[in-house]
């Protein structure tokens, strides 16, 4: 069976300085996947590279066996909350409608079907009563729910969420996790950049441990081990840093 998500030999570099080295992993369909690693480990970069937002220095990313550009409609994305301007003049409903744009394609305008879908998604995250609000008037947790509803409106098979629990209240965190578990139940694969090691075992059934390189990728029970965590958090590989710096400066070895 084709894995839902596969990264093959991927190296990602900013200004030629690699931030992710030779990532190679496969994730089967229907998993709730935590992407775990210390700050600067390249978690967000992994997602951005998977979504074609950052060019790859080498390697490839495949969604159900095909490159991302051919599978856009199967992928939903929830960026970090602070990546957008919350003073933007849009209502909660408008934001969720944006999730339907990808399927519509160029020029075509959203219609009744899309409006109903957006309302259904808002309902699912419990934000329907706030549909007409301007988005600045929401709390952090509510903003995150709106983002999640927008992702739902993308009707994707694979979701990438970048730190959805950052700065949200406990109730929202629980609600989001439940929703993600529902999605998994429907056969979706969900990737979540996550910080809190305490909750990994409760939330996820699959983990990707990352620290500039892939430390491990697999089911939580066999992969989320103290030994692997030690490798992930036990300091960076100084040679990787030195080599990355050498590549940035482009200084050939003597």
């Amino acid at each position: 069976m084709t894995p839902a998500f596969e990264i093959h030999d991927m190296t990602v570099a900013y200004h030629r300085r690699p931030v992710l080295w030779d990532i190679d992993l496969q994730v089967p369909e229907g998993k709730l996947v935590g992407i775990i690693g210390p700050n600067g480990a390249g978690k967000t970069t992994l997602i951005k590279a998977a979504l074609g937002l950052t060019p790859l220095a080498s390697g490839k990313v495949e969604i159900y066996g095909k490159p991302y550009a051919q599978q856009r409609k199967m992928v939903g994305y929830v960026p970090q909350r602070e990546s957008v301007d919350w003073d933007f003049p849009v209502s909660v409903h408008d934001v969720v409608m944006m999730g339907t744009y990808g399927r519509l394609g160029w020029i075509r305008r959203p219609g009744r079907t899309q409006r109903l879908l957006a309302e259904r998604c808002l309902e699912q995250v419990g934000m329907l009563p706030f549909a007409k609000r301007q988005i600045r008037q929401l709390s952090g947790g509510q903003q995150q729910r709106v983002f999640l509803a927008r992702a739902l409106a993308e009707q994707a098979r694979i979701y990438f969420l970048d730190e959805p629990f950052a700065g949200v209240d406990a109730a929202t965190e629980t609600a989001i996790v439940e929703l993600l578990q529902t999605l998994r139940g429907q056969g979706c694969t969900v990737f979540v950049v996550h910080h809190d090691l305490e909750t990994v075992r409760h939330y996820f059934d699959y983990v990707i441990l990352l620290n500039m390189r892939l430390v491990a990728c697999g089911p939580v029970h066999s992969t989320f081990t103290p030994e692997n965590l030690q490798k992930t958090y036990g300091g960076r590989l100084t040679i990787l840093d030195a080599a990355a710096e050498a590549m940035r400066q482009g200084e050939p070895g003597p």
């Binding site: 220095a57 100084t238 030195a242 590549m247 003597p254």
Partner: peptide
């Protein structure tokens, strides 16, 4: 890469291809 970065043996070749030219002598010694 195989030993410390956990890359699989059939995947290291390409990354070595990119990096090897720029490794400073000090890193090689290390």
């Amino acid at each position: 890469m195989m030993r410390f970065a956990g890359a699989a043996s059939d995947h290291v070749d390409r990354s070595a291809d990119d990096v090897e030219h720029m490794l400073p002598a000090s890193v090689l010694l290390e």
